[in-house]
Design a protein around this nucleic acid. Structure first.
Lengths: 200, 200, 200, 200
DNA sequence: TATGAATGAGACTTCATTCAT
DNA sequence: GATGAATGAAGTCTCATTCAT
């Protein structure tokens, strides 16, 4: 059969990306078959190859796009001229909101790294390090101007990111705490980690 | 051929557990085949089934044993009579040392949860919650006697655990910091998170 | 490789059915592997699954189609308005001819019943009972109008069917007796079994 | 472990024969594994090989012993000096009783012939032909002395055997008819098949 | 004689991928 | 751009059989 009326290539590719994202997040890259992705999308497995050369490319594109979108989103959100405490709060709120909105992308970007081929892995790692340099730079600024009392900038940066990301494992919509409350809590916790002189 | 002279069942089972642990940690449960585990161990794939009924049982046993060993290790390490700050430091040092020593077990106990069948998953989750109740109880004690100033005990507990576990992703033997230094750093960071009055 | 030029799905499915029929009849369902069926058909084992979901389905379809075809063939062959002796002769000749023409189907429909899963088994059993009701009804008519002297209609029905089917185990083309002679012999034997007043 | 107290080799061999008989009859030779036979018997699969060299030998011994026992039983039961009608009735009653008592042996002796290796197959076939010569001889005697009116001795012999064996597929203890009634029915049916002048 | 651990082959089935249509 | 049929490799698991103990 030929293309079904009403569907375009771009639409199908997008449906495939969504299905793969959902399935990779739920079951893991290695446990998901091309047939499952196809079935979720309403096409045959063979049709996937009109849009993505290999299964690996599908994963790689998801992660690549995610990291780039994350960096772009931060570029847009970033506000120059803030003091280190303000900048850190701004970053924490951004990070939490973005990571909860894109929880599946975030999840697979941590879980499926080892399933990337070497070249793809390096590219993603580079982007991740660029993102991690954002809080690191804020910490360094705050350490320099004395508004923070940093224990060890490297370790503290990783601690902050690990702490924030941990939230995605237990956060539930309609849970005990609203998103705003969670943001506020983490802002205070992060402020403590960096030895900020007075909270807020 | 039959059993090779000098080999015993217990030995083979242990070699299989080790190989599976290593391979699951490196490539992920779904990406590792029984043939690979067998090859690593020097037996035929079919021989695995003399020791473990299914691949799932192999994973489950690794995780089950890990969680129970962790809880037992804490039972042994626990020192009653410590003040909350002392107890928290004691827990942090225990957790870091144990988790670095058993980094592969820890890793798969987080990564492969979703590959457990429902019943196995529940059992592991129960053990995990028991372990998480350890720091939670310390926080509650410290909040009660005023030695801690806790932002939110639930969130802070999860934040501490996430922060500590994050270390396993970047720690390298022969890295910039020794294990002792890392322990000391995290003790201070955790003290900050719980609003401990004076560090140490 | 993908589909080979000139081959269609229906053709392959039919070749698979034929190969399975032949092999199941010769060696038995349990002793025949999917690889053997595939090899006989000139495809890879995996390709079978494009046409039949499981090995069980392959067997079931063969039996189901056989029983339905048999019942349909009788529907076509049946001639209303015959006297019981005429009807019985008509049935015997039909049964012999059909069962020799489809000897492999008949064979596996008796031999492989126990290899059917419960639901499939019940379906086949129902069809078989429908077929067995054909001679039974003729016997009952003949008993009612006095043209037959039936010893026990149930037992006699089963005896007739067993006797007729037994022929498939020793019949050989080019044997001592022609098909026509065999038909005539069995017509007389059956007439005796039902106590028919005068032969023919 | 060594032999368990209280068990002897002969006992185990007999238990193995029984288990194999039961399982082969229920599921078919090809579908039964040595492990299943062992499990049913309470030993390990390896222990079977102390009693039977191969799975094929197990089957062959069951069939061989069955056929020989059948022939011996007939030798004992046979009564010389009977008239052909008396002899035929005697045979029919013997056959029915024996075949119902040993229904599993009879069943596999028909179903599993094709799973015998060539040499074993020939041996069993020879024994079967010897048994089939029993009714054949009676028919020939009755034809010679005019007490029977045989349509075709070969075909009638096979028809009688097929008819009698068919009973094993529908006979149920506690069914509508007692064993005695069934015997009597078949005696009458067989008498009809051979054109016996007056029933009984 | 029995166990339990092993082999090597092979079972059914699924996989990523290809390609004629 | 999509289908459906195919490949060839590989998946988990079971098999008959062997043999040190």
């Amino acid at each position: 059969m030929a293309r079904r009326a009403g569907s375009t290539g771009a639409e199908t590719a997008e449906k495939l990306r969504n299905a793969a994202l959902e399935l990779f997040a739920r079951s893991g890259y290695a446990a998901v078959s091309m047939r499952e992705i196809a079935a979720e999308t309403g096409v045959q497995a063979g049709a996937i190859y009109n849009h993505f050369p290999t299964k690996q490319d599908l994963l790689n594109e998801l992660l690549q796009v995610h990291m780039e979108t994350l960096l772009n989103a931060w570029s847009e959100a970033e506000e120059p001229g803030l003091t280190p405490p303000q900048a850190l709060e701004h970053f924490v709120r951004f990070h939490i909101r973005y990571h909860l909105a894109k929880s599946r992308e975030v999840f697979i970007s941590y879980m499926e790294l080892r399933n990337l081929e070497a070249a793809n892995f390096s590219a993603i790692e580079g982007l991740r390090r660029r993102y991690e340099s954002v809080p690191r730079a804020i910490l360094d600024r705050g350490a320099a101007d004395g508004t923070f009392d940093i224990v060890d900038p490297q370790v503290t940066t990783m601690a902050i990111i690990a702490m924030l990301n941990g939230m995605t494992t237990w956060y539930r919509e309609n849970g005990r705490l609203s998103l705003d409350e969670i943001e506020a809590l983490y802002v205070r916790l992060v402020a403590r980690l960096v030895g900020q002189k007075k909270e807020d």
